[in-house]
Design a protein around this nucleic acid. Structure first.
Lengths: 144, 144
DNA sequence: TATTGTTATACTCTATAACTATA
DNA sequence: TATAGTTATAGAGTATAACAATA
């Protein structure tokens, strides 16, 4: 690329957020692919593992996945015998991890925690707490 | 959602990055939709406006869009008479904004700058410089 | 040999509309 | 009436493979 190209997005925090997030997600996808899991499936596995019996719609609400997209997602996990779906009332299904699901969830958790640690280590220690504080504040605004 | 749901992603900076970025991109998409532009098209318009005559592959390299995806993107902008494509040698095309393209680029720029400003204002002033410094450092690591 | 641009194709995430069954 | 789950469908971004034309 010619050295004189002007980047009009330079200095835009939203664009930087997008780039860093995209790179992070691509790396996560690559590492989870070893387990034949997509990022969304991995996070769902973690949520079910921490909240046995949780309802499909509650998982969706926590992760901001609309119910129409939760259906094929949990169906695929169930077809691989990673989760069990038991009716809790006539319309809700409680989700729990199978033995195989628990094993895969642990591997998923190690991969995710490893990647998150690597991200943290790329931030200079002096700026880390402030960066995290501001980022988490932004993230929790979205949730409400 | 039951109050006792445990969020295993809580405290994960990569996940927070993903959430904040997704919310930002959704809002950008909504605002650019008024101009019938997608985020990727808007950023390409800005890059061409700042770099008249830039090559399609150089735009792709700057924005990290693979060439196979640049083709339909610039084709759509050209079909709307927002950009002109002139051959610079036998295989490269130099891209410039048309008059209509310039006008739309200015509107795009105002929308993007407005949204970026709103994002900045959501970060407490005391943390702003540190947050930006760390974020930009992460973003520029990706580019190399 | 490497690069530009193209076509075809596929994957992932996301979103809405319309529906059934249940609370 | 509202909620849970499902089906069908579509849009947007991203990715690879294979190719023709040009440098």
């Amino acid at each position: 690329m010619p050295a004189m190209v002007i980047d009009p997005l330079k200095g835009f925090p939203g664009y930087a957020l997008r780039r860093v997030s995209a790179a992070f997600m691509a790396e996560l996808a690559a590492r989870l692919a070893v387990l034949d899991l997509r990022p969304a499936e991995g996070t769902v596995l973690l949520v079910i593992g921490m909240n046995p019996g949780i309802t499909q719609s509650d998982v969706g609400r926590l992760l901001d996945i609309v119910s129409a997209n939760m259906t094929p997602l949990t169906a695929r996990l169930a077809s691989r015998d990673l989760i069990d779906r038991e009716p809790v009332d006539g319309r809700s299904h409680g989700l729990t991890l199978s033995e195989a699901g628990r094993r895969l969830m642990q591997k998923t958790r190690r991969i995710m925690e490893g990647l998150e640690s690597e991200l943290l280590e790329r931030i200079p220690a002096a700026q880390r707490a402030t960066f995290l504080g501001a980022l988490m504040a932004l993230a929790s605004e979205e949730k409400s």
